[in-house]
Simulated assay, not measured.
Amino acid sequence: MIRYRVRETVEFAALTELVRAAWGGQEDGSSWPGILARSLTWVCAYEGPTLIGFVNVAWDGGRHAFLLDTTVHPDHQRRGIGVRLVEEAAASARAGGAHWLHVDFEPHLAGFYARCGFGPTAAGLLRLG
């Protein structure tokens, strides 16, 4: 059984391992405390005691929230966990006062975010680094 926890304490080491498993790279976990301290909300998915999914919602302090880091462990993908994470995040953002939830994604994720209820929109991106 998968349990979803909204804005509860998360072990940063477990979150770092999840991100490494899903995205690769050398994430060291040092940025998570600062990121979550400024977030509107986040949602974690657990199977037993194991963190298997995560999504973060950043915001502007007003009406606009931004979905970031939607992550499901590769061993648990394609089971609806990601969609449920996004649904829980959207409900929590709405309850927190957000009126809009934005998400940026790569083209191969368009179907996933459409299943989550996101519609297409024109947007711009300026690479700063």
Rank of each mutant, 00 (worst) to 15 (best):
Y113S: 04
T9N: 13
R79W: 05
C44I: 02
L36R: 06
Q26L: 09
V43L: 01
H99R: 15
E27Q: 11
G111W: 07
W32E: 07
D75Q: 15
S30H: 09
A93W: 03
V83G: 06
R7S: 14
L128K: 04
H99N: 13
V55M: 03
I52L: 01
D28F: 00
C116A: 10
V83R: 14
A58M: 12
P107K: 10
G96F: 05
L109V: 09
P33F: 01
D104M: 14
A14Q: 13
Y113V: 10
W59S: 13
A13N: 12
W59T: 13
P107F: 09
C116I: 05
S92G: 10
E87H: 12
P74M: 01
N56W: 10
M1S: 13
A123S: 14
N56Y: 06
T50E: 14
A98K: 04
G34Y: 03
E17C: 02
L128V: 12
I81E: 06
Q26M: 06
T121K: 12
F105G: 14
L128M: 09
L109M: 12
H102P: 02
W32D: 06
G61K: 06
A98H: 05
L85D: 07
W32G: 03
D75S: 15
T16H: 00
R94Y: 09
A95E: 14
E106K: 11
S31K: 13
A122E: 15
F54Y: 13
A91I: 08
G80A: 03
A89L: 05
A91K: 15
Q77C: 04
G48Y: 00
C116E: 01
P33A: 00
L128F: 02
D75H: 15
E106C: 02
A58Y: 02
L68S: 03
E8H: 10
P74Y: 00
A58C: 08
E17R: 13
L68D: 05
A90F: 02
W100Q: 13
A14Y: 06
W23D: 09
W59Q: 05
L101H: 06
P107I: 10
G96I: 08
P74A: 00
A65F: 05
H73Y: 09
F112G: 01
H108W: 13
E11A: 14
A123D: 11
Y4F: 15
A90C: 07
G80D: 08
V19W: 11
I2N: 05
F54N: 05
L40F: 02
E106L: 13
D60L: 00
W100R: 14
T70H: 00
R115M: 05
R38D: 10
A14W: 07
G111F: 03
V83P: 02
T9P: 15
H73Q: 08
T16M: 00
L67E: 04
C44G: 07
A122C: 11
E8V: 07
T41C: 13
L128T: 09
D69H: 08
A13L: 11
T70N: 05
H76N: 10
G61F: 04
L15V: 07
I52S: 01
E87V: 03
P120E: 09
D28L: 00
D28P: 08
G25T: 01
R5F: 08
T121W: 07
H99S: 14
R20D: 08
V83D: 06
R94V: 07
I35V: 15
